[in-house]
């Protein structure tokens, strides 16, 4: 998959670069898992919360967060307040977004 190709060189270079060090590779996998799990938990915490999205071109919108795909390419949101009105159900492209924020 594209996602694997994007991530793979990291693990390949660390496993071949230092003479196939399985310890280092294990450490890297461990680090990646911890980081990824934290991120997924943050996304879960965002579910059904009001979220503000700061997008490119200084566009700011807010909406109720629904879900995201696993590659975080799209955010599915409800009640999206845009400068030109409210859209009941919407998808935001992650590539349009610089920052998203919410309160716990």
């Amino acid at each position: 998959s594209p996602r694997f190709l994007a991530l793979c060189p990291t693990s390949i270079s660390s496993s071949t670069g230092s003479g196939s060090d399985p310890v280092q590779m294990g450490e890297e996998q461990c680090a990646r898992s911890a980081l990824r799990e934290g991120f997924l938990r943050a996304l879960v915490a965002m579910t059904n919360k009001p979220v503000q999205f700061d997008m490119y071109e200084r566009v700011k919108v807010h909406a109720t967060f629904g879900s995201s795909d696993i590659d975080v390419l799209n955010f599915q949101v409800s009640d999206l307040h845009t400068p030109i009105g409210v859209q009941k159900e919407a998808l935001l492209r992650c590539q349009d977004v610089i920052l998203y924020s919410f309160d716990l």
Partner: peptide, 8 residues
């Protein structure tokens, strides 16, 4: 309250 901000 904690505020969470995610920078893409």
């Amino acid at each position: 309250t904690a505020t969470v901000r995610v920078v893409t």
